[in-house]
Design a protein around this nucleic acid. Sequence first.
RNA 1: GCGGCUGUAGCUCAGAGGGAGAGCACCACCUUGACACGGUGGGGGCCACAGGUUCGAUUCCUGUCAGCCGCACCA
Length: 877
Amino acid sequence: MPSAYHPEQIEQDVYALWQSGGYFRAGRDTSKPPFSIVLPPPNVTGSLHLGHAWNNTLQDIIIRFKRMSGYDVLWLPGTDHAGIATQTRVEKTLREEEGITRHQLGREKFVERVWAWKQRYGGVITDQIRRLGASCDWSRERFTMDEGLSRTVREVFVRLYEKGLIYRGNRIINWCPRCETALSDIEVEHREVAGTLYRVRYPRTDGQGDVVVATTRPETMFGDVAVAVHPADARYQALVGKTVRLPLTDREIPVIADEYVDPEFGTGCVKITPAHDPNDFEVGMRHQLDMPQCIDSEGRMTALAGAYQGLTREEARHRVVEDLERQGYLVQREEITHAVGHCSRCDTVVEPLLSLQWFVRMQPLAEPALAAARDGRLRFVPERFTKVFEHWLENVKDWCISRQLWWGHRIPAWYCDACGEITVARTDPDRCAHCGSDRIHQEEDVLDTWFSSALWPFSTMGWPEQTPDLARYYPTNTLVTGYDILFFWVARMVFMALEFTGEVPFRDVVLHGLVRAADGRKMSKSLGNGVDPLDVIDKYGADALRFTLATGTTPGGDQRFQWERVEHARHFINKIWNASRFVLMNLPEGFEPQPLETLPLDLADQWILQRFAETVARVTEHLERYDFGEAGRALYDFAWDEFCDWYIEFAKHPLYHGDDQAKIRARTVLLTVLDGLLRLLHPFIPFVTERLWQYLPVAREVLAVQAWPKPTYPANGEAAVTRMRVVMEAVQRVRNIRAEYGVAPGKAITCTLRCDDETSLALFRETQDYIRRLIGAERIDLKLGGEAPAKAVSAVVSGATLDVPLADLVDLAAEVERLRKEEQRLVQEVERCQKKLANEQFVSKAPAHIVEAERAKLTDYEQRLAAVQERIRALEA
RNA sequence: GCGGCUGUAGCUCAGAGGGAGAGCACCACCUUGACACGGUGGGGGCCACAGGUUCGAUUCCUGUCAGCCGCACCA
């Protein structure tokens, strides 16, 4: 075994070992209770980023924990076809490599190309997930465009349509002129940007002056069909019903009254452009106004804009403002900041556009989802997300599901050229269901990618077929995902599942945040501050990355990525490696551990076994609550501080100087704790723990399927912890003396241990071999009471005083000074305890064990204070 | 406007109703028979501010200030 851990040498082999044994396959033992998670499917064309790495690490921790805890686990992986992203990607390749557009290629050929791309690159991200160590059941891998999943999508669409929950309608939608497709509300990111509020004069046709409207989008004026004022606005009441002339055109439009207008804002007069503004659209509907479109799907001005036709929105705005100004219509410019919608995919300014699209009627679907959140069938971790979830569903608008793309599930609707009716069917029809005509053609649009993602928990298990997997593993137990897709994905899965399976798709929703750059900013391509998880794995190993991400987890929170933390995680793993090496080096060939209860455990053994049992309990509890950070930190502390720094050091005495029985005892305890520790650590750092565990004499099969430890408390464990605390303090005190007096580490000292009573004497007699080794003493003189030796430096602990004779090194004045400080500290402690105990309220109202503990502390401090004071007197005499 | 999060050591962040923690950084010492990716010792914090609840608050409640994030509106 090398003296340092080299992840690159083992990770691939270990993963292959797991794979070849089929240990990740669900259903290996169906007598166990099932536990299932579906992996949030990453974009098939994407590559792993730190967010995925985090998300996958957390899921794998749960999955491995549950697998070891006796569940038949299913972790179902897969990828998402990611409509816009994938299409854009392939279009880019076509453009760069062949200089052609998708239109030149035609729909069918283009879609073939996308499939070819998927075949070639679709495995990249799943391979990266494997490198992380994810224990997915790859035999059940799915893709949202698979035949089976496509059938689910189709079935769902048809049923929703038949139920009247899907409709086609002319609505204002968010349109991305660059992607040339509709977007749903949540695909639009609103950002505050600097803009200008223009005040424009619209002359009254009766010659009685003007109406001044305020607008940030003067270029939409060609789509104006009215000017609206508030019905109660005294300034304008006389105006309602009059008409005004639209500048730069020869059109006249009416002034109408509508409550939507805020009299306080701008001039209190609003131009109404129903085809290009959602609010204006509502006004238009109420007043049955025309809805002419002055901007087209590429973001250019239409013929309606007259001389401005063909200009982009931006160019048109510029020119319109210029012309308005030149002709005296522009009254004022005001610099303002306002929120503008941007395409979440490409960042282009979104154009609200009146357009014929397909929608899902949300209200009937939202109600059951809300109920599930409210009555606790769905449980969010952390809990505060429940409110966010509910709030969104309470205010949700109909979901625009049609996308003007070629890559995706094509909407199964056919239009009849004869009667104009729509046929929606499970199998491709060849005639119109209404008139029987064969002159039908299929809808060109595809479905929003989130439509198929929304079905993921049950589509992947074969719904609508009643498959064995669906029966056994659905509903799933837990979903782990980032809070950023709570609405996009989680909410939609919930209402779809409730509608089609009658059950919530998962019980627990565990949400985590974002991985940010070290300075706290988001990682982004434009900032160039992204970190590739594969680079991290190459440098430090997958386990180090996993441990970093897991211990950096705080429920529902973001975390910053820092290389130093990864480095530190690797140090920790290296520590585990070397602790294991130590244990293994001290096990003779063919060593067989004895049952612990048959061995005469000493105090150190009882102590570490007790602490280990407590750690098992804590880690298990934290994992049950999905508190990954706390679980990881608890393991870190136990492994490094208690097992490595103390117990292994203790164990060296019996191992090197003990008799056979002492050796067997130490070896057994070391092996027991190491075995258990590797099990506890396995969900966090699976590669190295698997590798190490394989070396253990107790190894059979693989660690990945071994049993999760149960807390086994040794006899007298709690007492051992209390007693060992004193021993460890004694060691630390003497080490401190050595350091303060500059005693060379190699130089042996002697030490007198004066005990206050028999109890204390027994404790130190029992542990003096350990203490001697750890303080570098050649001899310890144990006594009951008595005087300190001459020229000694002293440390007082509970029940005893340690005196270290240091001859000439001792400066009496300095030593008195040192003891005075200690005295002062103890006086403060004594006073604090006394004050507390003197408070009758405290004594009568605080829990008995707290009061009792306080009394015990007081006694201890008083004794120690007396000992220190006595020592000072002796030195001063 | 509505909702939420955060404020703790120089930095990054845990924590919990009964004596302030970790890592990094810093200082000193150390190749001690697992590990220098290590060991030992050490310095460093009115736990943002003000009230309240409580025998006891850094922890719970309210408010203030500061930073951040959602959602809605913004002609």
